[in-house]
Amino acid sequence: MTARALATRLVFVLVCLASPLAVEAHRLDEYLQATRLSVARDRIDLELDLTAGADVASAVFASIDTNHDGRISPAEGEAYAKRVLTSIVCSADGQSLPLTLVDRRFPELNEMKLGTGVIRLRGSAALPALAATGRHQIYYRNAHKPEIGAYLVNALIPTDNRIAIGHQQRDYAQHELMIEYEVRRDPLRSSLWWLLAGVAMAGVLYVTRLSRMPSRVPGNIDCA
């Protein structure tokens, strides 16, 4: 190593040692609760990812691991997931929607203690009047552990291109989200209507053309 390279490295190390920086790679005392809502014609799917910061992870874990054996059993996981879902309010066009737990995955205690383990809950709610075209509104509110909660809530772009998300309104902390959306007519049905209209138009043109043809002279031979 050259003297210059050595000096550079020394300066670098000294700078590093002198730097009075707060050191942590991820969130500490918050419980991040990120929700993504997916609107379909017949249901709302909900993805909820919960990440407890390192300083609150043990308390969150203890509230799930109710027998305190250091592991989250399937029953404890299910009970916690259902508890979370009961603290969520979801409604469509003013009508309350019961949420069903679809899936839940829990990290190990060690991952949670590092503040990086993500609890993944998946829920779903059936929508009433699923076939109705027109404008609709969904309301979502997450009130789980508000004393430590940090919230994100977003609507995913619908996979069904008949559904178009419109205006969205949240509160400042993203506890709640109101989504306006529109269900449009089935493009295939629209195409069929266009096809029928096209055939009808062709018929009208044909009849109109026939009516404008000069009368045949008797004895002429129709070659068609």
Partner: peptide, 17 residues
């Protein structure tokens, strides 16, 4: 690398680290 050498990798900036 700076992060590694700062405060010995301590949790900082908040009480209760």
């Amino acid at each position: 690398e700076v992060l590694k050498n700062s405060n010995g990798g301590q949790t900082g900036g908040r009480q209760g680290g």
